[in-house]
Design a protein around this nucleic acid. Structure first.
Lengths: 133, 133
DNA sequence: AATGATATGTTAGGTTTTCTTACATGAAAT
DNA sequence: ATTTCATGTAAGAAAACCTAACATATCATT
């Protein structure tokens, strides 16, 4: 579960690639970083390296800007979203904890009988995913 | 089906990133290209850009080299594999067209009984996948 | 209308990364 | 004892990226 996030947060792309992927200028990308909307990693030589999550964020930023939201607004939006996802995660943990073993057994049995192809979980797949697979 | 391929073949990574992802030296990566085991794209400025498929290939190459296979061998292997996957694809299309539901049920039952450890079925998911999702 | 803030463009000089080419080398094959 | 193969290493050039500074268009505010 955190495994996925580790991968999506792996620094891979130089700014040139990100420019193409997002259709933003280097100036814009750096400006958004300046306003702490993203925080790409750096190589030893001080070059920025962006991860998939960064790119998703940039695409979101672009969207919001198109809709007239300014830096401060976007920052707040991201904060709220983060809170939300934390809350959701806690809830799901809580749910898991509250199940008794008995319930679990039942659930499992049920699961085995009916397991459909429906294993999609809430944590949203970033838009960048469409580039792969 | 070809949609996926478009994405996995999208040139994204500079050689530095590929080095880290594969733990190969630049020298090695370029050498394999020289022997036409991969053909990365280029930027306008002539810098190499690798896609996910390239990285999968490089990991395969690394594996094969560890097992003592030389350039020519790897090249042949790749050729054969490509042929195989083409054939398999054709077959699966044909199969879909020709199998009745009844036949499919039988096949599946059989498959489930006898499927040994041999399911590394040709179209292997590149190892790089573990970095994402 | 003048002022100021915001988001982005542009330029300049410096550093890192990558490129090609050439030569070097250890191990394996002949 | 030579070749061949896979890789290392070095040099010089070019591309990509860095920071910092100044420029500018669009708004909102005065």
């Amino acid at each position: 579960m955190s495994g996925k996030e580790i991968r999506r947060s792996m620094p891979l792309f130089p700014i040139g690639t990100v420019m193409q992927l997002t259709e933003l200028t280097a100036r814009q990308i750096r400006y958004y970083e300046e306003h702490q909307l993203i925080s790409p990693a750096r190589t030893e030589g001080n070059r920025r390296l962006y991860c998939l999550n960064d790119i998703d964020r940039l695409l979101e930023i672009k969207d919001l800007i198109d809709q007239g939201v300014n830096m401060a607004g976007i920052k707040q939006l991201f904060l709220v979203k983060e809170q939300q996802s934390i809350i959701l995660e806690q809830q799901s943990i809580k749910t898991k904890r509250e199940l008794t073993d008995e319930q679990l057994r039942k659930l499992l049995r049920n699961e085995m009988m009916h397991s459909g192809r429906n294993n999609r979980s809430s944590l949203r797949q970033g838009d960048i995913s469409r580039f792969f697979h």
